[in-house]
Write a protein that binds this DNA or RNA. Structure first.
Lengths: 240, 240
DNA sequence: CGCGAAAGTAAACACCGTTCACTCAAATGA
DNA sequence: TCATTTGAGTGAACGGTGTTTACTTTCGCG
């Protein structure tokens, strides 16, 4: 009973992955706005209405795709980190950040969907705060974790001029992180995000065409700010 | 002859501003994707086809709206700067940056349109590099200018770890700026942009709900990096 | 084999951008 | 002043979108 039922489910899941694959293909081909249920159905030789057996609405499909992408880039960063092998937190951060940028520029439409503004109304926005940002938070966590290690080792950079009291009042409930780690993470993350998003969205095409020097400079700046451990780990600033 | 013709032109221009006003109202109400020619025409008691006497296409209308918004925020920043009156370049930069953030958060849909990814295809993207980024560049220029003054006064912050050679190879032709100024500008601009865009796009709702401490920290950090002039101007770090 | 649930279809509704042929009024020139 | 040209606006159509509803078909399970 469950055997054939499983076959059913597998078929269903296969159809759903086909839907998501086609959605991604459309995303790659024409950007986030080009994702269309009718076009997916057309390509699958089906009616658009049939897709509603698998997806409650277009928004949900886009959100799910967005979640998958967050996981994909997180796994890519983790893989790059593990492939490098260096246990030094700073080195791990640099490797992951570079992989994040590499992935984003190699998958611009996907990155635009992930890091750009949420598409339609406000519902999806809140959804992003709960469901998707779960994946988004997981992506952030792999950067938070090495910073936490740095903090535990007393190597965390000084939080420049951040008003910790006010920042502490603006944190979500689930934050069990030391406020210093949060401050350093947010500062570094938004700096990298700014360079990446600005390039992705063509915000500074009038000022520069290659943001790699800026990105590397932020990485080097961060690394230089980390308090050196007496033993080694000062040579990890070097590029890969 | 030209008298009546002028009246005609005024009427035409009045209609065009009405179109753009309604487009902006839709933008405010429902985000960039909610801008619709048919809805504008409906609200004006006209046919959608009639709008094509005033606007070549929806994309062009959005681009023009975007240009207007860039000018509007630039003028707002200039006004804040002039209202403050302090001639110190650092002080002017801080005032303008704060006004930029205040405006963006007070006009989130408009800011999303301006600072988010370009909506449809790639054509608009290039248009943004030429026509719109003309307005975008002007917005950037009011921040470049005080930095240029700082450079002339020998007070420009040290460009952290930016690879100036590589950066110099990635600049558009129209750049007659000293490379150090460009480097400092791009670094500071992308840092502020990152905080602003991240908040606008809900990218770190899982990590923080108020980015004001981060923004102020970046400003303070920049101000602290400026080489002090022998006379005064070190007290201008204070908030307004 | 027959039943029932799941999958898929067809049609409709309400939108959207855009184009084309057409009307109508107003400004222009002789 | 009168005919003409120009511009604004209309109506209909084409092709596209998301979504819902009622209906049909298919297929696994008892």
């Amino acid at each position: 009973m469950s055997d054939t039922s499983h076959r059913r489910e597998r078929l269903r899941e296969r159809t759903l992955t086909e839907i998501k694959d086609l959605a991604r293909a459309q995303l790659v081909a024409g950007g986030p706005a080009a994702i269309s249920l009718r076009a997916i159905a057309r390509e699958m030789g089906m009616t658009a209405a049939a897709l509603y057996r698998y997806v409650p609405a277009l928004d949900a499909l886009v959100i799910e795709l967005c979640t998958d992408l967050h996981n994909e880039v997180r796994i890519a960063c983790e893989a790059a980190r593990d492939a490098d092998g260096d246990p030094d937190p700073v080195r791990r951060l640099l490797v992951m950040a570079r992989e994040l940028r590499r992935w984003a520029l190699a998958h611009r439409p996907e990155a635009t969907l992930m890091f750009g503004p949420p598409l339609p109304g406000v519902e999806q926005f809140h959804q992003q705060c709960d469901d998707l940002q779960c994946a988004g938070a997981q992506l952030g966590q792999i950067f938070v974790q090495p910073m936490l290690e740095l903090w535990q080792a007393g190597r965390l950079p000084d939080i420049g001029h951040v008003d910790l009291d006010r920042l502490a009042g603006a944190l979500p409930a689930h934050g069990e992180l030391p406020i210093e780690v949060t401050a350093v993470f947010l500062t570094s993350w938004t700096r990298l995000y700014g360079i990446l998003a600005a390039e992705l969205f063509g915000q500074l095409t009038w000022a520069a065409t290659d943001t790699q020097p800026l990105f590397e400079a932020e990485l080097a700046f961060f690394a230089a700010q980390v308090h050196p451990t007496p033993t080694a780990a000062a040579a990890s600033v070097r590029n890969s």
